[in-house]
Amino acid sequence: MADYEPTIIAFVCNWCTYTAADLAGTSRLVQPANVRMVRMMCTGMVDPKYIIKALLEGADAVLVSGCHPGDCHYINGNLKARRRMKLLKEILPKFGFDERRLKMTWIGASEGIDFAETIRKMTAEVKVLGQNDLRTRMVL
């Protein structure tokens, strides 16, 4: 079980983390291939239902990553996203989801190394948590 390859769905902001991920790639930084990235115009656009759906479909973890506070191109989309994450971290554990399956980070466009490191760490953490079995189970 410890050996499974987790699937991480990452909702990343076009202006920062997405660029950082691109930079990590072009810099040929070694990073695990566990992330499926969804590029958003801003983390403020990440509705809680996207995250809920990802988990119900069997994602082992969800990452939301945007611009550092003060750097959001839409002024405060990232701060809205943080409140929504807080909300989900309150709600979802009530139904047995480990809150460590929900992660949020600030990663700026130039922080490719930081991105690769975040993914490496997160993949390792989620491996320990074990697989989300909803992927292959019937969910009502």
Partner: peptide
Amino acid sequence: FYHLTRLA
């Protein structure tokens, strides 16, 4: 999904 979304 519906109920969890409504809760959120």
